[in-house]
Amino acid sequence: MYDDLKQKIIAASAELGIDKIGFTTAAPFTEMAASLQAQKAAGHTSGFEHQVLAERLYPDQIFDQPQSIIAIALAYPSKMQQKAPRDRKQRRGTFARASWGEDYHFILRDKMQQLAEFIEANTELEFRFKPMVDTGELSDVAVAQRAGMGFIGRNGLLVTEEFGSFVYIGEIITNIPFAPDPPVENQCGTCTRCIDYCPPQALLGDGRLNAQRCLSYQTQTKGMMAEEFRPQIRSVIYGCDICQLVCPFNRGKDAHHHARMEPEVEEVTPVLQSMLTISNKEFKQRFGRLAGSWRGKKPLQRNAIIALANVKDRSAVPLLLEVIENDPRPVIRATAIWAVAELAQHADPALQAFLHEQQITATDSEVQQALLAALTKLQSKKD
């Protein structure tokens, strides 16, 4: 009975636009316990993870008498079909590929709801279920790997045969005991490209990472970004794709199966200078549907300022000076001060005088520290 229902679910998943599906047991993920505890003890977690360890390991802690877990994957594009205009007078930033198109949380939830409705309509059992995307308790990649959808690479991402790691994944815990699919073992072999090419060396080599050093995490923080990471984000204002782009399993992978995931140029490659003065209303209108908008506009504006310095856009200096003088947010002002000092080609007396004036009126410690560092840097350019 369950095998017949499983085959019907697999067939229906394809019709619903689900690119990959797998089944596993609801047994505990106890093999992850030591690793998760070690990461937390080492300070390698991001803080975005679910905080109750038992609920991350034991499905029966979050669902009454679970019998199995259904994992699904949706493939997303790795290349834009429409290219951004090339204009050196309007330098652009970029969102990482996992933030292209509509927020994947909504797309995955819609697909899982459709799948649940199909199961409910095709069984006489009392069907109970709990859908989750990456904000849930369980580890999506651990579930998907055990469900036979792919293996967990050295970069900690699920790598599928058909789509590489360019997939969004979610899972449904259920009370129906489906036969599990065989898990997929790691196939990285001796390849260490993702580790070698990670600028801040955030990957630990065994599928784990130091999230505090991950550039994707750094673009999502709300305070000042440490100077070490600023040049490393280059012109990316949300996320990071490096460990995926260098992965051999991703070579030639580019799926365009879902219209809701297609990127729009002005959304995912915005003009950097336009980011600095955008209102809250404009931000929601332009970027509200992206997964990368979840932290609000301030981190993206901070990242855009850093990107302007990284791409050496000296035409942005007048706008940055306006930000320093008028923006009420210390993080934005302090980052703009750093950027102006980075962009200055010599010790401009007028710029130095402007920054000295700001020292007189600035009350925030972050701004004062940025001013002192900027003036020191400008002085070194004079010497």
Rank of each mutant, 00 (worst) to 15 (best):
374 A>K: 05
66 P>H: 14
176 I>N: 00
184 V>M: 08
350 A>F: 08
297 K>S: 12
362 A>H: 05
344 A>R: 06
294 W>H: 15
217 Y>P: 05
331 V>K: 02
75 A>D: 00
113 Q>P: 01
225 M>L: 14
84 A>G: 03
123 T>H: 01
176 I>A: 03
181 D>M: 02
178 F>I: 00
199 P>R: 13
261 M>I: 02
63 F>M: 13
32 M>I: 01
50 H>T: 11
138 L>G: 01
112 M>K: 01
49 E>H: 04
21 I>H: 03
13 S>W: 02
193 R>C: 10
110 D>G: 14
180 P>N: 01
128 R>Y: 14
204 L>P: 00
282 E>N: 13
112 M>Y: 03
158 L>T: 09
308 L>V: 02
303 N>D: 13
72 I>W: 05
117 E>N: 15
186 N>G: 06
348 D>T: 12
260 R>S: 12
58 Y>L: 14
169 I>Y: 02
54 A>N: 14
235 S>E: 15
265 V>N: 09
206 D>E: 03
217 Y>M: 03
296 G>C: 03
73 A>F: 05
132 M>W: 01
208 R>Q: 15
263 P>F: 03
202 A>E: 05
268 V>T: 13
94 T>R: 15
96 A>T: 04
151 F>W: 14
359 Q>G: 15
220 Q>W: 01
91 R>A: 14
160 T>H: 15
63 F>T: 11
321 L>V: 11
56 R>Q: 08
324 I>H: 06
319 L>S: 10
337 I>P: 04
258 H>P: 10
206 D>M: 04
119 I>E: 00
41 A>L: 01
118 F>V: 06
257 H>N: 15
173 I>K: 07
49 E>D: 06
227 E>G: 11
208 R>S: 15
67 Q>Y: 13
40 K>H: 13
55 E>C: 08
3 D>F: 03
363 T>F: 13
335 T>S: 03
120 E>G: 01
61 Q>D: 12
171 E>M: 01
19 D>V: 10
242 I>N: 04
244 Q>R: 07
99 S>D: 12
130 K>T: 07
383 D>K: 11
173 I>H: 00
324 I>A: 05
309 A>C: 00
155 N>R: 12
383 D>A: 13
175 N>E: 00
287 F>E: 09
25 T>I: 08
112 M>R: 04
88 R>E: 15
152 I>V: 13
169 I>N: 07
117 E>H: 12
362 A>C: 08
351 L>Y: 04
330 P>Y: 13
289 R>P: 06
318 P>E: 07
264 E>A: 12
157 L>V: 11
299 P>F: 07
338 W>E: 10
63 F>K: 11
321 L>M: 13
330 P>W: 11
268 V>L: 04
146 R>T: 10
313 D>C: 04
306 I>R: 02
253 K>Y: 06
22 G>S: 09
310 N>D: 01
312 K>C: 08
325 E>W: 09
266 E>R: 08
178 F>E: 00
47 G>H: 05
255 A>E: 14
375 L>Y: 05
368 Q>Y: 09
8 K>Y: 03
135 T>V: 13
25 T>Y: 11
32 M>R: 15
254 D>A: 07
157 L>T: 11
208 R>G: 12
80 M>N: 07
317 V>M: 13
93 G>W: 08
9 I>Q: 01
249 F>N: 02
276 L>Q: 08
145 Q>K: 10
233 I>A: 04
236 V>M: 14
369 Q>C: 13
345 Q>F: 08
